[in-house]
Nucleic acid binder design. Sequence first.
DNA 1: AAAAATTGTTGAACAAGTTCAACACGATTA
DNA 2: TAATCGTGTTGAACTTGTTCAACAATTTTT
Lengths: 193, 193
Amino acid sequence: MIYDLLIENITKNRAVSIAEAEKFCSFFSAKTISKREFLLKQGEFCKFEAFVTEGCFRVFSLDKKGNENTLYFAAKDWWLMDIDSFMNHKPSDLNIQALEDSKILIISQEDKTTLYNELPIAEKFFRIMFQKSIVAWQRRVVRNNSLTAKERYYYFTTRYPEIVLKLTDRQMASYLGITHEFLSKIKKQDKIQ
Amino acid sequence: MIYDLLIENITKNRAVSIAEAEKFCSFFSAKTISKREFLLKQGEFCKFEAFVTEGCFRVFSLDKKGNENTLYFAAKDWWLMDIDSFMNHKPSDLNIQALEDSKILIISQEDKTTLYNELPIAEKFFRIMFQKSIVAWQRRVVRNNSLTAKERYYYFTTRYPEIVLKLTDRQMASYLGITHEFLSKIKKQDKIQ
DNA sequence: AAAAATTGTTGAACAAGTTCAACACGATTA
DNA sequence: TAATCGTGTTGAACTTGTTCAACAATTTTT
């Protein structure tokens, strides 16, 4: 069933009844996205939140110098959203693009409000999910400040080997915060030793 | 009243009744922390969350090379916690130290659970607070990757001028992700022009 | 008030990462 | 099939930021 993965995601480590899980899922509908297609473009209003059931996405922004900055990749079992645009009803700074043919479960802004109102456990679920997310972002900041590019490259490739397979070097470099030329040099060094 | 600032913080932009706000506050007790005192040390279990009503704190970790990495500063009206240690009941990676004589409102781990159970609006309040926090962390990652040290210095000093006054250069440098020597050189360059 | 410790400054040598340009390769597209 | 475009690689020159050491100025402790 298309909701299996989402049900597992929301019930994992939490006391959620079958009825609650089913109600939760009823707010989401399935959607297919082709490779290279954009789910969201900078400047648009983000009026959805989504859960990835198949494929992979890249979330990135463009800075003033025109460089791409990859915030994160979202493969199966990850959530996709622009919290800022969604929460504050403002144009998005982010682009969300499919790296391969993908499938998501999507909820609209209005339905998300209804979900919170009708299913109190949803507040707890997302509250905990956001807490975990903050921990991950804090660790990312510390890694970016305290590790060299080479160390960050090792961390990323050993931590997310399945995602690495789906990326070009340019996409990975924009996540690591280095140029793709320098990433190429890191990889070369690596092979020699 | 000592709860005034907390009440303003939780009611701002949200429909919270006076009764709810008062109940919320009843879980918190006032505490005084002296300059240089640690509210939490790396290795300890973080069994509290706190709201700063006076003074300023620094939250930092030590990496393998022995360098301090400042995650954030928390002045009046900010929340202080180690989400990871608190949520996952594990030893903390973080140090929380008062930069000056300070006052906080503090809630214990048990009371936080009770608060969530007895006051459903608390789930919504913290869910929204955490969402805002994620947006801030995402922006920090983008700034760290796309701005030079000098640009980050400008951003920080113009965005948080009151906090800057309370910091040594070393503390600011550890937040910006540079050495204090280099910060000193940035400041010198700055004066000349 | 003296001693000790921490802080900020500066310089010189160095390391990490960028920029730009050139080229080879593979994948789309016409 | 040819043409085009994006990708990965490499080198040389350059910029940004680090490291280490020395010193002066403050702050803290005794």
